[in-house]
């Protein structure tokens, strides 16, 4: 199990246990986390599981595919350099302690 932390816009945080191989989005929705919508269910089609990631962690993630890059141009909240879609972040043991910041809204 890998622990990942979601930080809400108001500063509250939720720590969830993620299984290796599942996406950060799935870990969030499995735990009923408010703030990740994932309308398309993890198919990289809707941009409603947007998260912001700080530089340190961002550098440790595999680079994004073109598909994700294009979707991020349509997020409800501004795209920032640390923007990613959490359905495209596959959890590995090395990501233990990962911190993901949630945007104000997803749609």
């Amino acid at each position: 199990m890998t622990a990942i932390t979601f930080i809400h816009p108001d500063g509250r945080s939720d720590r969830v246990e993620a299984s290796e191989g599942e996406s950060a989005m799935l870990a969030a929705t499995r735990h009923g986390l408010v703030g990740i919508l994932a309308e398309c269910g993890g198919n990289a089609m809707c941009a409603t599981c947007h998260v912001y990631i700080d530089d340190g962690w961002l550098a440790r993630l595999p680079p994004m595919a073109d598909e994700e890059d294009a979707l991020l141009d349509g997020t409800a909240c501004d795209r920032l350099p640390g923007s990613r879609l959490s359905c495209q972040i596959k959890i590995t043991l090395e990501l233990d302690g990962l911190v993901l910041r949630l945007p104000e809204r997803q749609v």
């Binding site: 598909e67 294009a70 349509g74 997020t75």
Partner: peptide, 12 residues
């Protein structure tokens, strides 16, 4: 890929 971009979140 073509249709995904034509109907993307930014187009919406």
């Amino acid at each position: 890929a073509v249709l995904s971009r034509v109907l993307s979140p930014s187009v919406m």
